[in-house]
Each structure stands twice: as structure tokens, then as C-alpha cells.
Computed example of a mutant assay.
Amino acid sequence: MRILFVTATRIGDAVLSTGLLDHLIRTHPGARVTVACGPAAAGLFARLPGLDRVIPMEKRDWRGHWWSLWSRAIGTRWDLVVDLRGSALAWLLRARARAVMRGGRRPGHRLAQLGAVLGLDPPPPPVVWTAAADHARAAALLPPGPPVIGLGPTANWRGKVWAPERFVALFDRLAGADGALPGARVAVFAGPGGAEAAMAAPVLAALPRGRTIDLVGRLTLTEVAAALKRCALYVGNDSGLMHLAAAAGTPTVGLFGPSPAEEYAPWGPHTAVARTRVPMAELIAAPDYDHRTTGSLMGSLPVEDAVAAASALLARLAPAAAQ
């Protein structure tokens, strides 16, 4: 069986789609899969069982990226084309079956929207595919010792970025003598590129030396997933890294303000959300609001709220962790 799976440009949405792909692999043993996605998300699928190839879709003018994908897919007769981007592509290819997501935003969590494409309710949870080499790399960077708190201080637009000094204060509270993870180390996660490094730099500069592990731009996505599995807790802005942490099974707290937690909260019983005290609708209602240029809108999320969310999550998970 040959499956073409067309998924998201951004890492977070691509992570959320992995549950659907895992479902297809499990229900069609031996299937060969081609994944089309944005370049930033391509590394997520490097360890996918049954992978034939990943086609990175570089955005081009005049929808040229779609014509490029069509030219690379038209020579195959597909048993199933799954298009989560709601394009016309599936109808322009030879395929025995098609599943195409309807365009436009709808109420409910994004994962439920994705599950509906294949008629799955409840939707299958996101997964990560890793290899022994990824875990060896992660173990070398995060060796056994005190627990590790992962921090994700970056996001794809500035409005979602919590202040660096608040991430530092959060770690100090959680790792302090009276905190939920006393004596913990800290690992700072961010993707490659100057913008990500710039957002992470003030956090790294203020964290305690000797207890800080700098993972900014140093790992592939499968290595990041393996490293996240070694963390006792992850706290980060609404981002792809947040979804990857949740998919890895790490206790995850997502920080939300001007983005919809109802649609994009981290998924699973091991997750929690801390929100700004000013509602999203009010944050984005300003006449001069523009997600491309507006600065951080996370100011009404105090450190104590994030600490409380993290501490409550760890306390809720403690009985299961002790078994």
C-alpha cells in the first residue's frame, strides 16, 4: 500500500498530525509512506516506519509549491492520499481513496479536527518516532543526575513570547528548596536560526552556571524529542516545541495569551495550561494589533500562575510516576 500524507508547514501542526499517520501505519502494516510538509517540520518524520521519502514544500509564488508537489507525486498510483491542508491536490492525482480536510477554522481542539478527517473519535494522540542514535545523543547531553526542567522561551511570533526574566524566575521557584523539583537542572530548547537564538539568549545568560544545558539550535527534531523524554517537566510558550514535548510524554505546561488554548493546548493527561489573566479576545482587539509586528502580549501571565500550574501538574502525576 502506498500512502501520500500531506501535512502542515509549521512544526506544531505537523506534530499534532502524527497521531493520524501512526494510526494509518498500524492499520495498514507494510504500507509505504511519502510525507509532504514544510521544510521546518521535515525532520519530524526522519524515523517514521515505512517511510519512502519526505518532500519538503518550500513556499513559492503563485502556489508553485503545490505544482512542484504534484509533479513529484503524479507518477505514482496512490492507494490513499490524505491532505490535511485542504487543497485540490488529492483530486489531481491517481488514487484509490482520498481524505481531505475541509478548509477554514472550526471550534474545538485541532486534534479533534484532524481526527475527523479519518472519522476517528476520539482522535489518536500525537507520537514521536526516534532511534537509538537520538537517545544516545540525548543521554550524552543530559546525563543522569538531578531532574531536568526544560524551558521553551521562543515562539513563531513575538506576541506569544513570555518575558525572559519570568522564565528564569519560574525555574528558580520550581528548583528551589521549597519547589516542586528542588535542585533541578535546566535545559533550554530552541530551534536553529538567529531569531530563535536571540529569544533564548537572555534566558541562558541569567540561568545558574553549572546547572544549565544549552540545547539551542544544536539538535535535530528527533534528538529534541529524545532529550525532552529525559526531562521531568517542560514549560514553554505556545509553539511546536510545546507540542513535541507533549507528544514525547513529558509533563508539559503550555503558556497561552494571544493564541487559542481551546484549539492548540498541549494534548494528553500529562499536560496543563497557564493563561494570561487578560483574555485572548481582549489582547488581540487593539486597533493596531498585528501579529507580525506587535510585541509580547504575555504580560498578564504572572510567574506565580505558571508555577502553580506546573506544581499542580507534577503533583497530579506523582502517584503514576511512583508506580
Rank of each mutant, 00 (worst) to 15 (best):
P126T: 13
A261P: 07
P251M: 08
L228A: 06
R77G: 04
E262V: 08
M1Q: 14
N237T: 09
M199F: 08
L48F: 10
T220A: 15
A312M: 13
A88L: 14
L92A: 09
V186Y: 00
A8D: 07
V235P: 01
S71K: 15
P182K: 10
G217V: 00
M298D: 04
G240Y: 09
R94N: 10
I11P: 04
P302W: 02
L170Q: 03
P107C: 13
A36L: 10
S296P: 11
A95Q: 03
L151N: 10
A205H: 10
G159L: 04
L111A: 14
E165W: 09
T18F: 07
V15A: 09
L69H: 01
A97I: 12
A245T: 04
G30F: 13
G64C: 08
W157N: 12
W91F: 15
A265R: 13
A90F: 02
L142G: 06
V278S: 08
V224A: 10
R230L: 11
C37Y: 06
Y289G: 02
T276V: 06
C37G: 04
R185K: 05
V161P: 01
A163T: 03
R94A: 14
V273K: 11
E196K: 06
R166Q: 07
Y234C: 05
L314N: 03
M101I: 06
I213F: 15
